[in-house]
């Protein structure tokens, strides 16, 4: 069965007819050619496909394209370009927050979404006092909040350094 889906991706409106089974991840990669968003597990177990849906970080593999009709998506390609890097992208390069680079688009999109969650005062499992409306951006918080993004090269210490750096700005 095909469904009609209208999406804004990186500011560009797309009206598509897709298989009802098509996930946002496969739609981005196979229909729109936006292959920066990676498939690492297809089951919400690795975070490589993290994108921003209406500004909120989500796993693209765990969303049917059909159910996102009308939503706005930002992928790694929409955050910045080689000529005009997003500060988070620049920080990842400076701190060598990746090796093979495959989980990197997901890490970066996740980090951008994470900083906005922090700004909104949302707590995490390691937040000491849940009643505090503001949460400090400290290493332990960043680690816990980024745990949905697996990096098999294990660039974790550098990723956290990059995020703390970019988050200060």
């Amino acid at each position: 069965m095909t469904v009609d889906v209208g999406l804004t991706v990186n500011g560009v409106r797309h009206d598509l007819k897709v298989d009802s089974r098509t996930t946002l991840l496969d739609l981005l990669r196979e229909h729109l050619g936006l292959t920066g968003t990676k498939k690492g597990c297809d089951h919400g177990q690795c975070g490589a496909c993290t994108v921003l849906v209406d500004g909120v970080r989500k796993n693209a593999c765990m969303n049917l394209a059909a159910s996102l009709d009308g939503r706005g998506i930002v992928t790694i390609e929409g955050l910045g370009t080689e000529q005009a890097l997003h500060p988070m992208q620049a920080a990842f390069i400076e701190h060598d927050g990746f090796q093979c680079g495959y989980c990197t688009p997901g890490q970066i999109c996740s980090a951008v979404g994470m900083l906005s969650e922090l700004k909104r005062g949302l707590p995490s499992a390691v937040t000491a006092d849940l009643r505090e409306a503001a949460v400090d951006m400290v290493e332990a918080e960043v680690r816990e909040r980024m745990s949905g993004n697996i990096c098999r090269c294990a660039a974790y210490p550098n990723i956290v350094a990059a995020i703390l750096d970019a988050g200060k700005a």
Binding site: L34, T35, G36, T37, K38, T75, I76, E77, L79, G80, T81, E82, L85, Q89, A90, F92, I93, E94, D96, F98, G101, Y102, T104, P105, I108
Partner: peptide
């Protein structure tokens, strides 16, 4: 020095 393929990797331009 920073990786020379870094920009391609952080922008999603690197093709696997």
């Amino acid at each position: 020095i920073d990786r020379i393929d870094g920009k391609a990797k952080v922008t999603g331009a690197a093709r696997y």
